[in-house]
Nucleic acid binder design. Sequence first.
DNA 1: TATGAATGAGGCTTCATTCAT
DNA 2: CATGAATGAAGCCTCATTCAT
Lengths: 232, 232, 232, 232
Amino acid sequence: MARPPGGGAARPARAPPASGAPARPGHARQGSRGATVATPHTRRGDTRRRIQDAALSLFVQQGYEKTSLREIAEQLDVTKAALYYHFRTKEDILVSVFQDLARPLDDLIAWGREQPPTLETRRELLRRYSAALDEASPVFRFVQENQAAVRDLSVGETFKKRMFALFELIREEDAPLSGQVRAISALFTIHAGTFALRDIEGDPEEKRAAILEVALDLITAADGGGTAGRPG
Amino acid sequence: MARPPGGGAARPARAPPASGAPARPGHARQGSRGATVATPHTRRGDTRRRIQDAALSLFVQQGYEKTSLREIAEQLDVTKAALYYHFRTKEDILVSVFQDLARPLDDLIAWGREQPPTLETRRELLRRYSAALDEASPVFRFVQENQAAVRDLSVGETFKKRMFALFELIREEDAPLSGQVRAISALFTIHAGTFALRDIEGDPEEKRAAILEVALDLITAADGGGTAGRPG
Amino acid sequence: MARPPGGGAARPARAPPASGAPARPGHARQGSRGATVATPHTRRGDTRRRIQDAALSLFVQQGYEKTSLREIAEQLDVTKAALYYHFRTKEDILVSVFQDLARPLDDLIAWGREQPPTLETRRELLRRYSAALDEASPVFRFVQENQAAVRDLSVGETFKKRMFALFELIREEDAPLSGQVRAISALFTIHAGTFALRDIEGDPEEKRAAILEVALDLITAADGGGTAGRPG
Amino acid sequence: MARPPGGGAARPARAPPASGAPARPGHARQGSRGATVATPHTRRGDTRRRIQDAALSLFVQQGYEKTSLREIAEQLDVTKAALYYHFRTKEDILVSVFQDLARPLDDLIAWGREQPPTLETRRELLRRYSAALDEASPVFRFVQENQAAVRDLSVGETFKKRMFALFELIREEDAPLSGQVRAISALFTIHAGTFALRDIEGDPEEKRAAILEVALDLITAADGGGTAGRPG
DNA sequence: TATGAATGAGGCTTCATTCAT
DNA sequence: CATGAATGAAGCCTCATTCAT
């Protein structure tokens, strides 16, 4: 019977995306692939990827619930049935996008666990998180704006776990409550700030720097103890 | 029919149901009514309110898109058509809930505009915002978790405007970028912190205090300038 | 129990519209009553009439099926329930309008039956029919445009019978087929011509005259026999 | 999905179902297919056509508004959703039926425009119109009986335009008013006569002939001027 | 003489999904 | 590698109607 791939693990033989190699940098428009080294075949076997791209793009634009498979298919000029050749369900598309795009976060957490739990580690975590956000931005934004929809999707649980893990790495276990809050706040500052500042004036790079600065201050103050935002 | 109550604002003069008085304090659980003064609660004529309560409750639990009018009706043991007697559309239910529940935020903004733009005013704004959040929490949580769904609902625009107005009051117009970020961050700390800390240990009142403390520090530091978290 | 009148025959005591007196001439806009002698009470007990007027007006504008009781009620600034105080069903409203407005046609048929079946009688029937159409135009137009909708309403059967009766009076029983067709054609010319020529140029009175002239010619030719349009 | 067949005109190149060829002659009863050349009628792939047939049949029987998609679907033993696979809306079904069936009228108009505007042309137009009516009868009858319903459907405008075009061809531009009326009357005689005489005695072919004769007389008289119905 | 509240049926439409080809 | 055809469930909404007050 038709539909060999589709499954989570059982990918078709062709081009197993394997570890983490091609990384998909831009992810900007549908069908985007490598940047410098142009992949020659314009549309050959990359349908799966194109679906992911289109789906994410629409999910981000309109929300998960409000995006129908019809729309995704239409945007790609493919039939709905084609989507089902590549993915088992609508949720599966989302999951697959996450598997690819949330890796930076996984890597970050893995890295964090290997470091000593010093202030500098925590600061570096924030720096790296900020950078990661810049890259994988769509997924994060998607999660932020679709919390309710995503809550009882497998992806929701996954994501929550990761954020919590990150939080665990960033806070100082036995700091006072205000310290914990500062840690969370640092995280949120990066997270939400990134999106909130979009609508506001200024050079993107400068803005990112400012956000990071504030977050670092927060974490530093957290370390110092309750004297709020003042390490010294 | 000629004048169903469902109309936006222009309610008919007669039959003034809850023309502003009882303010609905808790609104936490479905069907919750007055706290101190026992409202008789005749279960007749309060259907409109019951719909609002049930709807909000479900919207918060499952998200706006995933909550169907059928569910709302079933929960109230009423037909769907009954909902349509009281409200013109699904969105209208949401809007009406907002009209009632977002007032604290409006009041806060109004108050803020009458004050001199001093640091102390900004601090007081944060304090009051924190208190308001505690009360109207469901609506705010709803907005936070349903951003995508709410984006192209009239309610979305409204809410965004209000948040922006609040931001305008809280930031110092010509502070450096990092100051602006700190202002936003203070707001988010209260906002998101309130929800994020729910899943975490500790006494609610203490947590609120800690969150507020951090936010106040942020705004204070913002005032001091770029020296991040350190006013002096 | 409420709802004393409503029924077809059992009208409330107040102002039994009785025979055919007030005739309702203009029927132009909602609430129109006598022309010269202004009825003083602007809105007292005439609700029944106002409903009929509004209903007919909407039925004509939008069609019977597409006009809802809500719309009628809204236009009168009354509740739907009020309509049900005056009429038992939606169809009843239509029926009542017909009862009042189709009388000219009944009278015409009655008159025709008392006359000798001469050509001149037939010609006079057409003349009077043309005049009747001008007055009761809305109902006729309504029937013409809502044939499908009206077909299985009691009103449909009634109307069909009347038109057939008129046809019987106008045709010459044992004329050749083409004569019969000419008779029908004469009727249709008046009927449809009245509506079709609306969108076209010219003075209304002149147009009516022209239509009548053609119809009279047709009936005259019909009388002459098969020699098509030539009496002599 | 990407390209459902339901699209208005721009059908995809492949899968050209009925791209103009078989013209669907009778279309009288539901499911009727070709007459002389036995179409295999595999009951597979002809669903679109079957929908059109069933729909027209029901539209004619009960009227457009009173025919629900449920009924259509039930009659075909298909789900409502199946209808939506083939057509985008209820109106679309109607439109598609028209596109196929109103062509004879279009052709007639096109032909008329190429002829010199002589009396004989006008007479031939009537003859051909009478023949066309006989064939595409259901659609015309449908329009006649559902004027109100069809008025604000795209199909209504279209049809009106066509009838007006035909009228323009048939009348003599600068004839006196009565001449114009005669032209319209000729059209209506064919149009309405065709339906009105159904309920009446006699051989169909004879009836058609009689109707045509009267119409031709009318147009001839129109040409002669005001002497109504008399060619000589 | 009406209204307020509600109902049950049904309308059109869309969705995620399936499966033979 | 994909399409064409279809389904069952459900969505939002509107309608004519009822009945206690």
